[in-house]
């Protein structure tokens, strides 16, 4: 297993790739969640034009391959005068793409929630952002927790595509090591195990949310 020794000797490169993947995932998850939570109410608006535009956005991204979208942002947008560095492009692509999914997940969870507690919120003087944050969102997050957790795992995996725009994340690091030392099996398998470990962490978080939801059911 000489090959794994080579990978071990390059561990700092691999770990910085892992760190970048974690940073990308955390930032993209926060961004996609914040924007998705804002987009969700638009999907349910009475005004036809607003709801139609929001649905078009969601459906559009659902039918777009992420890799193609990342290419479009990094190579396509500069030709119309909008250019990013690889981090900017990668984050922009991840956030926008997953916003569409988060909005749709929250819309589905919302539709399944009883309306009476929200009405009680109105009756007790909650309104606006306070109503949304204290009364509407918490049960929604508990209900949607497992599905949102899956979405975070999807973000982890989609971040690997960003190797094509030279973003130094985990796949990029593993690929550099394998091409530098020609140890593809060891380098790529190690990266795969690290992705797996990352997903286990996300799943532990999801399980914790699940236990909170169970106590309230």
């Amino acid at each position: 297993m000489h090959d794994f020794a080579i990978v071990w000797s390059e561990r700092s490169l691999l770990l910085s790739g892992l760190a970048n993947t974690v940073v990308l995932t955390v930032l993209a998850s926060i961004g996609a969640f914040a924007l998705g939570a804002m987009l969700c109410p638009l999907l349910m608006r009475q005004e036809r034009a607003v709801a139609w535009a929001a649905h078009a956005f969601v459906d559009g991204f659902r039918c777009t391959p992420f890799l193609l979208f990342a290419y479009l942002v990094y190579y396509g947008l500069p030709t119309v005068g909008i250019s990013f560095d690889s981090w900017g492009a990668g984050l922009f692509a991840l956030v926008l793409y997953h916003t569409a999914y988060v909005a749709e997940i929250l819309r589905g969870a919302w539709a399944a929630q009883p309306k009476a507690p929200v009405e009680a919120g109105h009756a007790f003087g909650f309104r606006g952002f306070g109503l949304w944050r204290r009364i509407v969102m918490p049960p929604l997050l508990l209900a949607a927790g497992p599905v949102l957790g899956n979405q975070v795992i999807q973000i982890v995996k989609d971040s690997a595509f960003l190797t094509v725009i030279a973003l130094p994340e985990l796949t990029h690091a593993a690929n550099s090591i394998q091409s530098r030392h020609y140890v593809p099996f060891a380098a790529l398998l190690t990266a795969l195990l690290l992705y797996w470990a990352l997903c286990l962490v996300v799943e532990a978080g999801v399980a914790a949310v699940g236990r909170m939801a169970e106590a309230r059911r």
Partner: peptide, 22 residues
């Protein structure tokens, strides 16, 4: 804001309780 302020003076008890489940 004004409507919410007036509602704080009126307590309401609901048929199906409408407690906050979380």
């Amino acid at each position: 804001r004004a409507l919410a302020a007036m509602r704080t003076r009126i307590g309401m008890v609901f048929q199906h309780f409408a407690l906050w489940p979380h």
